[in-house]
Amino acid sequence: MVKGYYPKTINEVLEILSMEEEHMLICGGSDLMVTKKFAQNMIFINQIEELKEIKEDSNKIYIGAGCVYKEMIDNEIIPEVLREAIKHIASPAIRNIASIGGNICNASPAGDTLPVLYAMDAIIVKAFINKDGNLYITRVPICDFILGVRKIALEKNEMVIAIEIDKESYKNMTYSYYKKVGGRKSSAISKLSFVGLMKIENNIIKDVKMAFGAVGPTALRSREGEKILIGTKISDIEEKKEAVINFYDKLIIPIDDQRSTAKYRKKACLNLLNDFITYKN
């Protein structure tokens, strides 16, 4: 028989997690119910108020891991481009139960929040209780948290409690760009997605952040690629464009699968990239 726990606080979750038996966290269940693979002990965390907090201070925002998409779309603290990405996830019913923590921990190549979180250098906040009963909180950048397809840097006794995003990473941007391409306009897993954030000052590109989704084991972001653009005068973009596109042409190595083809994914990614960098011309 499967045993279910309904803890009310993060602490209670961590206590159960620190026990010997095999456990599995379930939040909205919108990934787990599909896989139908459950552990002997299931810990239901979607009723924990502490995990549903969305707050900000002057430097960063804090999103509880249990926040569901609907709550995030409606909350102005959440960066516009992240909300835009979330609006294209699944369908209204799923958005009412599916959590951002679940999306990150599921670590699917097609997880739609991931490219945006990569572009913003989001920090994953983890917690655990060690043998002597003390609570520990650790922070890792998302790119170090996600190790590969459905592989994350999370110990058996740990859980993700929140995501933090530095406001610097999105606030003073000149424009942001997001596009998801799915097989249809709703309830579709991404064939590919692209997010771009651009900061232009005095006609010079001061900062740029770009990430692609569903074209590799996880979201794809390259600082090297971004560097090609940083410092470029807007009037010189046309000249730089080719170098950038060539760079990503080599970097993006998508696959053929039941949803799309490598060829299409590559072409659409490069077209979006091109559109993004020449957007304000």
């Binding site: 369908s91 097989g183 249809r184 306009k185 709703s186 309830s187 579709a188 897993i189 039941q258 949803r259």
Partner: peptide, 16 residues
């Protein structure tokens, strides 16, 4: 059959 579920086999939704 390669697309053997309703995730991979796309039929139009109301939004399409």
């Amino acid at each position: 059959i390669y697309q053997a579920n309703m995730t991979d086999y796309m039929i139009p939704t109301a939004k399409d």
